[in-house]
């Protein structure tokens, strides 16, 4: 009987310029180097059974990326973060691992929102305060984007669960935001566009991804009853948010 192990990892520094697909391949190589009993797909071109949650845009950093790996037998889970970090490139460090309960929802299904730190270039903190205040007070934040050659209009407001200026940086102001993932994943750049067209993002860090259980916001790995191994890394920023993402209520009953 195969089992699934969930890993949390960071993506920081130069390696942030690699793509989501590149990161997947780094993991495949690292898992092979460790000769872990990874389960493979059947068929013409067998691939290891890995499932990542939300893709992270090339160039963004993260304190909270997740990956579920299907294994044929149980590995030494507490030892895994250190062993894997050793095999992964500089800037990719595994910070926690846990065995998933059979039947646990996938990351794709489960994660409802993400917290971000977004540096906005050339924006004064006082201007940031005003922009954020206006945005949060607005009934709707209409954004037009091009999709498959057609203009699509979205209201971003329900997806902006929280946003607040944190303070000045060397090149601008840093914002903290929580953005919903459904019905589609809102990107930090879209938030900036909604605040004021022309704002340019600087350093962007995903600080957390969130799932909901019984009306409470939880980190995807800590929600698992099986205790996790943790490294002495910074934990994701666990600050209360001001909104509730779509589908959060219906997840209340999920075990």
């Amino acid at each position: 009987m195969n089992m699934r192990v969930r890993f949390r990892f960071v993506k920081l520094g130069k390696v942030r310029f690699t793509s989501h697909r590149d990161v997947a391949r780094m993991w495949e190589r690292a898992l092979r180097r460790l000769e872990l009993p990874v389960a493979y797909t059947e068929g013409f071109s067998p691939r290891p059974k890995l499932s990542f949650g939300l893709a992270l845009s090339t160039g963004h950093e993260s304190m909270a990326e997740y990956l579920d790996v299907e294994l044929r037998e149980e590995p030494d889970i507490p030892a895994m973060p250190a062993q894997l970090s050793e095999q992964l490139p500089v800037g990719i460090d595994v910070t926690a691992a846990a065995l998933l309960e059979p039947g646990s929802p996938s990351l794709q299904e489960d994660v409802l929102s993400c917290s971000w730190r977004i540096e906005v270039r050339d924006l004064a903190p006082t201007d940031a305060d005003a922009l954020v205040e206006t945005a949060l007070a607005a009934e709707e934040l209409i954004l037009t984007r091009t999709r498959k050659g057609k203009d699509v209009t979205d209201d971003l407001r329900p997806a902006v669960l929280a946003v607040r200026p944190v303070g000045p940086t060397l090149v601008g102001t840093e914002l903290e935001a929580e953005l919903a993932v459904h019905p589609r994943s809102v990107r930090p750049a879209e938030l900036l566009l909604a605040l004021r067209p022309g704002l340019e993002e600087g350093r962007v860090v995903r600080t957390a991804q969130w799932i909901w259980r019984d009306g409470a916001r939880l980190e995807p790995l800590l929600a698992e009853p099986a205790a996790t191994a943790r490294l002495s890394r910074e934990d994701p920023d666990v600050r209360p948010c001001t909104g509730t993402p779509q589908h959060a209520e219906e997840r209340a009953g999920v075990a």
Binding site: V15, T18, V90
Partner: peptide, 16 residues
């Protein structure tokens, strides 16, 4: 500059 170009990983090195 790397945020402004395609495939920025071309320029970072860091290979094993």
């Amino acid at each position: 500059l790397l945020g402004k170009v395609q495939k920025p990983a071309r320029y970072i090195g860091c290979e094993d």
